[in-house]
């Protein structure tokens, strides 16, 4: 379930914590597994539980507490846009509406071609750069006015067409 690469990355995290506190690495372990698989299936959570040595339900607790973990298949690119007040005051609402229109989906939905999932985010600690969004949990994009949004969607569409992004499981269904 966990590729050698993911295991290597988890091992590096494990080294940061006391030997009897392996559990501390569970958040990174889940994130790395998600980088590779796109989402956290029951099997993956189970594998992480075994690898770390903690009860599976405790892994499940963690995976559902932190919002960036995907518990369902997502599009190749998960785009999370902050709509909180400071961002809203600097154009985030319009940006979000534009994304919805451009992608033809609402929040927590995936485009029928499985390329995009759109999410509403909470404060990312970058309000000065509003509107801000994050692509696949890792890439933050700042000052996302309409033109930049369009450019980003184009860029990601092309990348998705090349099979880039996270493994696509998107079937157009809900993605929450």
């Amino acid at each position: 379930m966990l590729s050698p690469e993911v295991q290597r990355r988890i091992d590096r995290e494990l080294a940061k914590y006391p030997a009897d506190q392996r559990r501390s690495a569970v958040m990174s372990a889940l994130a790395f597994a998600q980088d590779e698989h796109g989402w956290l299936s029951t099997d993956i959570m189970d594998a992480v539980a075994r690898y770390i040595g903690m009860p599976p339900v405790a892994v499940y607790e963690v995976a559902t507490f932190y919002t960036m973990y995907n518990l369902r298949p997502q599009g190749r690119f998960k785009v999370t846009i902050c709509t909180n007040l400071p961002c809203a005051l600097s154009g985030a609402t319009e940006a979000a509406e534009h994304l919805k229109a451009r992608l033809g989906i609402g929040f927590n939905e995936t485009t029928p071609d499985g390329r995009f999932t759109l999410k509403e985010g909470e404060c990312m600690g970058a309000c000065g750069d509003a509107p801000v969004l994050i692509v696949n949990d890792r890439r933050m994009c700042s000052w996302m006015k309409i033109e930049k949004l369009d450019a980003l969607v184009d860029e990601l569409s092309q990348a998705a067409a090349r099979g880039e992004g996270r493994p696509g499981h998107g079937s157009g269904g809900p993605a929450k």
Binding site: R22, V26, A58, E61, F65
Partner: peptide, 27 residues
């Protein structure tokens, strides 16, 4: 000293939630 990466929970800014989170638990 090590860096620990969060994964989306405002409450982990609260100091004791942060401790729980470092311990690999819900914050």
């Amino acid at each position: 000293l090590y860096n620990h990466h969060g994964f989306g929970a405002y409450i982990c800014g609260e100091e004791t939630a942060l401790l729980e989170s470092i311990e690999g638990k819900r914050g």
